[in-house]
Every structure is written in structure tokens, then in C-alpha cells.
Design a protein around this nucleic acid. Structure first.
Length: 373
RNA sequence: GCGGAAUUGGUGAAGUGGUUAACACGGUAGAUUGUGGCUCUAUUAUGCGUGGGUUCGACUCCCACAUUUCGCC
């Protein structure tokens, strides 16, 4: 049962799109935010808790699952869905990002990448073929091509060579991909450069993937301006009828700006990582729940939020849990933050429907970041 | 009662005459964008038990007192 995407509407004023994903008898709406569950679990949350928030696609990571427990064990379990008890769609990252955060540039060759395991220092070698083979076995619904993920600030010449190699790797991966139920996405790179994004997108599209990712964003202190350029310069050359996915993007304003530039999918560790560090998203900006001023705040994080944490618990209690390093605190904040992004996506979709997305963006910016930001 | 030792921040403590009192934990704030539940950054004692004294200068030396602690009767 391969996931299906249908483009339903394109905004007349912006490049924003409304669409639906059909999967396993259910329909999900795009633009969509996808929480990250690196080790086949969205940290601290049960699948039931995600589903209670009407979750859609969630992520898992090829690199992590390859090292532990190993793709064969997941396959023996009956694939990722059965292994982790999630019957919604699952996307796997190729491991490209992790590998490059652990490898030196000199360890990157045409054949693949040599790097050290973050678990025990073992010398490892990953290739496009290996990444796809692992993802085939994991049996996720959307697999990513194995790409090089250079920083956006890398120089033009390096980026050009890197893109050419990533395209060759995409082709190699596609050649060995053999899971008929699994989509395979190509990845567009090129930093903030128009010519490179155009080249990367056009060459990747020629290989005809099921969808396209925009990579190399939000990874190296790049400016927001450069990030948004990367969005625009990439989507301009991508086919209308296929999904577009901005990898690693999750700051609320970046999601809105991404949608405006024609992106359908976003994933980010931020809601759960921020939660573990005691931060909560609110429509009026992020708050640090650990702050002393919440010590006696016997009110929910957000009064009009319908999440489990806000319906049953107070800031004072959640603050206590976070300060005492109790995992229930991280869990409540994770629920709230993920639900916040789901609420954000709902509002975004409503405003695309109404044709008021840019006004919404301006209002949101004012409310979330304040006038000075 | 006699004798010895000790007393530095919220905590554990370093410092034995010379500018702004080390370090760690904790606290307070901040960072975190295809997740190493990791981590990083800033900040946190106008003062060294109390009161005198010596000295150009004292947490550091001297005296008294207080408190704690150990030993002896």
C-alpha cells in the first residue's frame, strides 16, 4: 500500500499548496509537520498519544536503526510499523545528515562515506546502495536518497562538486531500490545559490523520484534569508504533482515561509528537544518553563490549547517536573509542542484556503516574535 | 573544668601577607532546525565566625570572644 499524494489547490497569491496524503485507508492533509522519532520512537511518546493528536507522518532514522538494533531485526519484527506499533505513515532519513556530522570531508569518496560510530567509535562505511537497502528492509513508506549535506556556507565550487556526486548517488540508490510499497525521494542541495539549486533540482527531477526534498538548510548558522532563498530556488524547478519536503525545518516562522514558497512537508527535532530542555511553544512565542516566574503559575501553558498537557496540568507542575528531571515533564511538553505545530499547520491550511496566508504570516510574526524581532 | 583542631557563597571546598577569592555542584538566564535525552554560553561571595590589633597592605600574623568538633578528668 504505497502512500498517495494529491495536490488539491495552489494559492493564487503565493506558491502555497493544499493537498492530501492517502495511506492505509486514511487521509491526511498537507502542508504537514512530521515529528522525529530517530530510534523508532518519538522520544517519550507512545504512538497512541501521537494518534490522539491526529498525527500524520513521523520520522525514523536509517543510521540509528542500522547501528541499533539493526535493520534485520526490524525486518524480522515485520517492519517498522509493526516493530514500533505505528500504523500511520513513516518516513526514514537516509543517514546522510548524521554521517556528515560525524565524518570529515576527506572521508567522503565517490563510493561512499567512512565515519566513526557515535556509539562505540567503530569505523563504518555507508554507501547509497547500503542506505537504500537498509530503508527497504525497515519498510518505511517514504525513503530518502543518500546525499551529502554540506553546510550552506560552503563555497560555490565545493557545493557544485558535492551536488554532482549527490546526483550520482541518487541514481545509484534509485537503481537498487526494490520496495514497491515505498516511495523514494531525491534531495535538492545547493546552499543559497540560484544556479546550484536550479541545477540540482533539474538533474534530480530527471531521475524521476516520487517526491523531492530540500536539504542543506538550517544546518550552519545560515541566515533566514538564505534559507528562504534555498526554498524558493528549489521549488521553482520541482514538478507540481509531487511532494516537496524541507528537511529539518521546524521553527514556526520558517515553516510558514516554507509553505509560502511551495513546500508540503516539514520535520524537526525541535518540539521534542525543546521539550526535554524545558521550553514550550506558545502562540506568543517560546517560553522557558524552568523560569522562576512559573513557579506558582497554576494555569495551563496556553489557556486555549486543547492538548492533554494543557487540559490536565499547570505550568507550576510541569516546571516542577522539568526541574526535578522527571521524564513526565518532557513528555507533557513534547505533547504540547507537537500539538502546537499541528495547530499551526491547521491554521496555515485554513489561511491557504481563505487566501490570507501572507496576512497570517505577518500577524503570526508579530504575535510570536514581538514587534522588535 | 583542662588541652588540641576547626570556622571561606545555597553546598563541597582551594587559597598561608601583595592587584578583580580557584574549581566543582547547585541557582539564575540564554542557545538548541534531516536528535548522541548529550551539550554549550553567560552569570552567581563589595566578602572569608564576631570584635580589636600588627602592617604600606590581612582570608592569611597576634589577642579576646562565639560556635563546632576531638581527647582527657
Amino acid at each position: 500500500m504505497k502512500l498517495q499524494f494529491n495536490l488539491e489547490k495552489t494559492d493564487s497569491k503565493t506558491k502555497a499548496r493544499l493537498g492530501t496524503i492517502t495511506y492505509n485507508g486514511k487521509t491526511y492533509k498537507t502542508p504537514m509537520f512530521m515529528p522525529v522519532g530517530t530510534n523508532a520512537t518519538v522520544k517519550t511518546l507512545a504512538p497512541e498519544e501521537l494518534k490522539a493528536m491526529n498525527s500524520g507522518i513521523i520520522l525514523a532514522n536509517t543510521y540509528h536503526l542500522w547501528l541499533r538494533p539493526g535493520e534485520d531485526i526490524v525486518a524480522k519484527a515485520g517492519g517498522l510499523h509493526k516493530f514500533m506499533n505505528y500504523d500511520g505513515p513513516i518516513l526514514t532519513d537516509s543517514g546522510g545528515f548524521q554521517v556528515f556530522s560525524l565524518a570529515n570531508p576527506k572521508d567522503i569518496t565517490e563510493e561512499g562515506v567512512t565515519f566513526k560510530s557515535h556509539l562505540n567509535g567503530d569505523k563504518l562505511f555507508l554507501t547509497p546502495e547500503k542506505s537504500i537497502a537498509i530503508q527497504n528492509k525497515l519498510n518505511s513508506d517514504i525513503a530518502m536518497s543518500f546525499d551529502e549535506c554540506p553546510p550552506a556556507t560552503a563555497d560555490h565550487e565545493y557545493l557544485k562538486q558535492s551536488i554532482e556526486r549527490t546526483i550520482r548517488w541518487a541514481e545509484r540508490g534509485k537503481k537498487v531500490h526494490n520496495n514497491p510499497n515505498q516511495m523514494l525521494f531525491g534531495i535538492v542541495q545547493g546552499g543559497p545559490h540560484y544556479d546550484l539549486r536550479k541545477y540540482s533540482a533539474e538533474e534530480t527531477v530527471k531521475l524521476d523520484f516520487d517526491g523531492y526534498s530540500i536539504g542543506g538548510v538550517a544546518n550552519d548558522h545560515e541566515s533566514k534569508e538564505d534559507m528562504y532563498k534555498a526554498f524558493s530556488y528549489s521549488t521553482e524547478f520541482l514538478p507540481e504533482e509531487k511532494l516537496r519536503y524541507a528537511m529539518g525545518i521546524g521553527e514556526p516562522i520558517d515553516i510558514i515561509e516554507g509553505v509560502i514558497r511551495g513546500i508540503d512537508l516539514f520535520d524537526c527535532v525541535s518540539p521534542t528537544r525543546l521539550a526535554r530542555h524545558g521550553h514550550a511553544h506558545t502562540m506568543n512565542g517560546n517560553i522557558n518553563v524552568k523560569n522562576q516566574k512559573y513557579k506558582e503559575m497554576f494555569e495551563p501553558i496556553e489557556k486555549d490549547c486543547d492538548c492533554y498537557a494543557c487540559k490536565h496540568y499547570t505550568l507550576a507542575y510541569i516546571r516542577h517536573l522539568i526541574v526535578a528531571k522527571e521524564t513526565f515533564g518532557a513528555r507533557l511538553l513534547s505533547i504540547h509542542n507537537i500539538n502546537f505545530l499541528y495547530r499551526l499547520m491547521t491554521e496555515i491550511r485554513e489561511n491557504i484556503e481563505k487566501g490570507t496566508l501572507e496576512e497570517y504570516r505577518d500577524q503570526f510574526k508579530m504575535r510570536f516574535y514581538g514587534e522588535n524581532k
